[in-house]
Nucleic acid binder design. Structure first.
Length: 520
RNA sequence: GUGGGAGUAGCUCAGCUGGUAGAGCGUCGGUCUGUGGCACCGAAUGUCGCGGGUUCAAUCCCCGUCUCCCACCCCA
């Protein structure tokens, strides 16, 4: 026994049976429903260049630095680690031993840098190249210096400064990030594989783990799971928005998720006469009532006035209710689009709730935005969010491309299904083979193999058990039938099958057994 | 990142403001060598989250730390 047990790192967890059966049901349903709408599955890597997410999400450094799992790639990390060791070195010129260790480390740093460049793991930039060259030249000078003189001390501090520049400021190396969401990856893949040459629009879905370095709470993990879909290319026809929403609601209905409501809104597009005009107007109105708002909302007046609408503070509600609404400021195109989406949803029989306060935090979202909430999820009650993002592919270096998509928080979806009693039952068995006696063992193996081949779930106990014990275990495991194999059965060739729910027993030949089980 | 609550057996929890640990459920075995669910009997499993302090003595009091939960922040 070790003293310290390993445990899953903060915000991550094991998904175990029987819960995993529910996860599989959810994912299987996604595959089925999305396929009927003509979507194909995409599986992008979970790791991407940090820059991809930084650009997609926007310049907000808070998100980039605080909430993403980012790190430097391997070969490069060694360069950076050596550099950090050097910059943290107290005073290398104090004693001979320390001084020579220091020189070795600097030498290793320069060496590792060049090796990383040669191996194409690291790219010399206009920022880090001169810094490295400076380190090199100071180091050459330092090598001929003796210990403990003014010159060596001066050179050492210059080296530290140069390395600091190289490592900390010039961002030595390639930065990678565990994906915090998949939309950016899907757009990257669309561009990288020239999917604009496929019949448009391209409809893709994905599912899998995402990572965010947030403080964990219920339904909110550092490794969490999303199921999402994106439609890229083609027109921005309202029918596309409506069909996407129809598919979503179908998916939730098939899962039996209760208390779902679909909130929709249109936030116009970025141009002057549409959202930009509205945001200016909103900010203007907010400034008039600034004193009555909480600190968070006051800050947002400057940073992101739209998010003030999200506020849940009780005393701000009447103020917010009186604010100008974006629906009254949409340009004609956006207004028409929004009306058409709603009309299309009516045609499809998709119930929705218009929520003029539903906004998205990011600039690239436009026009249709939506959110789906389920019952009883505490403050984190949204299970799905999404919207139209016609500018994103272009922002990432691709051709102008229309886009719309959503992401479902699978962890919360599962939680909600479990809380409304839609959780998975423990996995039972179809047949438990109660065998006794050396001679029956071979028959038991054959029976197990044949039943499994026929698709039944079979438990074959590894050691001989008394029949009483065997039946006890069979019922504990939730088996439907016990197949009793003893001397009598081997002799007569008629096996005993016991229905554990009704206690009824019957004799069946090997062939008849298969047929009987298939019928029930 | 901020604030609050909690961590005792596999699970749910009890444990008197200090005297080195308990129940129920579950697991395993027996009563029971060809018949399960019931009943009865028995057993195993705990560095009382971790580290330090106070004390003759700490699961209990104090400090730190980790993890979980709740709220905030944020929400791609």
């Amino acid at each position: 026994m070790t003293y310290k047990q390993f445990q899953a790192i903060r915000g991550t967890r094991d998904l175990l049976p029987p819960d995993t059966a529910l996860w599989n049901r959810v994912e299987q349903t996604a595959h089925e429903v999305f396929t009927t709408y003509g979507y194909g599955e995409i599986r992008p890597p979970v790791i991407e260049p940090t820059e991809l997410f930084a650009r997609a999400v926007g310049g907000d450094t808070d998100i980039v630095s605080k909430e993403m799992y980012s790190f430097v790639d391997y070969g490069v990390a060694r360069v950076a680690a050596l550099g950090n060791a050097i910059t943290d070195w107290p005073d290398p010129t104090n004693d001979e031993k320390d001084f020579s260790a220091y020189k070795n480390t600097v030498s290793a740093f320069i060496d590792t840098y060049h090796r990383a460049v040669a191996a194409d793991e690291l790219h010399p930039s206009s920022a880090n190249k001169p810094a490295i060259e400076e380190v090199q030249s100071r180091f050459d000078a330092l090598r001929s210096c003796s210990l403990q003189n003014e010159k060596s001390r001066e050179l050492a501090s210059q080296i530290i400064r140069a390395i600091y520049l190289a490592v900390r400021i010039a961002e030595l190396g390639d930065y990678v990030t565990l994906r915090p969401e998949a939309t950016a990856s899907v757009c990257r893949a669309y561009i990288e594989h020239n999917m604009q040459q496929l019949p448009q629009p391209v409809k893709l879905y994905y599912l899998g783990p995402m990572f965010r370095r947030e403080r964990p709470q219920k339904g909110r993990y550092r490794q969490f799971y999303q199921i999402g879909a994106e439609i890229l290319g083609g027109p921005d026809a309202p029918a596309i928005d409506a069909e996407l929403l129809e598919m979503l609601m179908t998916f939730f209905a098939k899962l039996g998720l209760e208390g779902t409501t679909l909130d929709i809104n249109s936030i116009g597009h970025a141009a002057d006469n549409c959202r930009r005009g509205y945001v200016a107007k909103l900010r203007e109105e907010l400034l008039k009532v600034k004193d009555k708002l909480g600190a968070d909302s006051q800050r947002r007046i400057e940073t992101n006035p739209l998010r003030v609408l999200d506020s849940k503070l009780e005393h701000e509600q009447p103020i917010i209710a009186a604010l100008p609404r974006i629906a009254d400021h949409l340009c004609d195109d956006c207004k028409t689009h929004y009306a058409a989406v709603k009309r299309d949803l009516d045609l499809r029989g998709v119930a929705y709730h218009e929520n003029w306060r539903l906004v998205r935090g990011l600039d690239y979202y436009m026009r249709t935005t939506f959110e789906i909430t389920a019952m009883d999820l505490g403050s984190q009650n949204a299970v799905c969010g999404g919207g139209r993002y016609d500018g994103l592919v272009e922002l990432l270096g691709g051709p102008p491309t229309k886009g719309i998509g959503f992401a479902i928080g699978e962890d919360r979806l599962i939680l909600s299904l479990q809380e409304s009693g839609k959780g998975a039952a423990p996995q039972g068995r179809d047949v438990y083979i109660a065998w006794m006696g050396e001679k029956t063992y071979a028959t038991a193996i054959r029976a197990a193999k044949n039943l499994r081949n026929a698709g039944f779930s079979v438990e074959l106990p590894p050691t001989e058990q008394k029949f009483g014990k065997a039946l006890e275990r069979a019922s504990k495991l939730g088996a439907r039938f016990a197949l009793i194999l003893g001397d009598n059965e081997i002799q007569s060739g008629e096996w005993t099958l016991k229905n554990l729910a009704t206690s009824e027993q019957q004799k069946l030949t090997e062939q008849a057994l298969l047929e009987y089980l298939r019928r029930t």
